[in-house]
Structures are given as structure tokens and as C-alpha cells.
Design a protein around this nucleic acid. Structure first.
Lengths: 90, 90
DNA sequence: ACATTATTTCGGTAATTGCCTAAATAACGA
DNA sequence: TCGTTATTTAGGCAATTACCGAAATAATGT
């Protein structure tokens, strides 16, 4: 769970998650939303993947990034327990 | 809100929050739960305070640390919106 | 004023992070 | 096979982080 919190610590990575929440995107498509070099963004992808927050799927020459919704739910649960909140529903 | 996510990125700081969730504690009392030097822990306190996750109150020679519950709630809300969760209740 | 206790600030170092450009890999179509 | 497109890996650098021990600050009691 530590890797999840570390992944969430960078604003670019949180923005990536927000974008993927709407729909899955390729690395190149995602990169259009940021003004940083692609290798740098690729590093952020690696961090998110290491935290299991996103999954990848190669489609020909492009690589699609998908939000791993269940991992997000797990992270949310961890955060809620940290905040001491009881869940009435999931 | 970025400072909150950054503050949550370190396991020691999350453990501090967990401890303070039960009850407020002095810096020295908190330090008994960790095997790191007090100056290091004091640095973690500074980060948590910078994120407004804890508040301090001097009581004579000791300094009491309190969990800032409302800031935790705010952070939770930010996390939920990141995860795309709708809140039925707070 | 002095000693004691609690905590932080200072000064330094090693490890990590975030960023870049250039080079490598992978898949495709001609 | 060659060129093109998409993406990652490699190499390097500056800034930040996490840690420590020593010194400074703050409050108290004598």
C-alpha cells in the first residue's frame, strides 16, 4: 500500500489517474495533456503501474493505459481506515 | 492539497496519524513508538503540520500534537473525487 | 541565575526523485 | 528489409528528502 501513497504524491500522476478515469488512453494520447517530455511521463507511468493503479495493454504499436479501478477502491479503503472513517457502503 | 498527498507518502507519517487518531500525544510520547532519532521525527511533524493534518499546542515544556480531523476529511474527499466515488453521506 | 527536561533547528551526507536528451526496442506497412 | 511511428530504457544532472549528532531554544523548578 505504500507504493500507492507514493504514487499519489505527484500531481502529474494524479492528473493521469483523473484522465484515465474518463477513458483509457495510449501513452501518446496522455502525453498531449502534459508539457513534459515523454520519457519523463513514461517514468510516471512506471510508478503508477508499480502501484498497480493502472494496467497496460499493447495494441499494435501503441500501448493503452487503463485505470485499475479495483486498486483505486482498495487505496480508498486504506485511506478511509487511516482517516478513521467507517464505511456504510462501498 | 498537494502537500497532503506528499505528507501521506511516508509510512512513518501515516503511522503518526494513526496514533493521533486514538488520542493526542506529545512529541516525546510519539517518539517512543518509533526507532528513529527525535530530530528526524520532528521533521516529519513539520511536514504533517505543513499539510495541516495536525495541530500543535504547547503545554508547559511539552508540545501536544492533535490530529486535524477536518483536514483529514477534506483529504478523504479529494481522494474520493480522484477515485471517482460519489459520496452518499459524509 | 542555573540545571533539567522537552523539543526544534542547524549542518552535513547519502539516497532518491524528477527532469532532460539520445539511444534502443517494438510493431507495422511498403 | 527499410523506414516510420510509438514508447521505453539508458545516462546524467540538479533538487529534494530522509536521516543523523550536536547545538540551540523554551519552559520549569530550585
Amino acid at each position: 500500500m505504500n507504493s500507492v501513497f507514493e504514487a499519489l504524491a505527484h500531481p502529474v500522476r494524479r492528473d493521469i489517474l483523473k484522465l484515465l478515469r474518463k477513458r483509457s488512453m495510449s501513452a501518446g494520447e496522455l502525453s498531449e495533456h502534459f508539457s513534459i517530455a515523454k520519457p519523463t511521463l513514461s517514468g510516471h507511468f512506471t510508478v503508477l503501474k508499480g502501484a498497480d493503479l493502472v494496467t497496460t495493454e499493447r495494441q499494435g504499436t501503441t500501448i493503452m493505459y487503463h485505470l485499475n479501478t479495483s486498486a483505486m477502491e482498495d487505496a480508498l479503503g486504506a485511506f478511509m481506515s487511516l482517516a478513521g472513517v467507517k464505511r456504510k457502503d462501498d
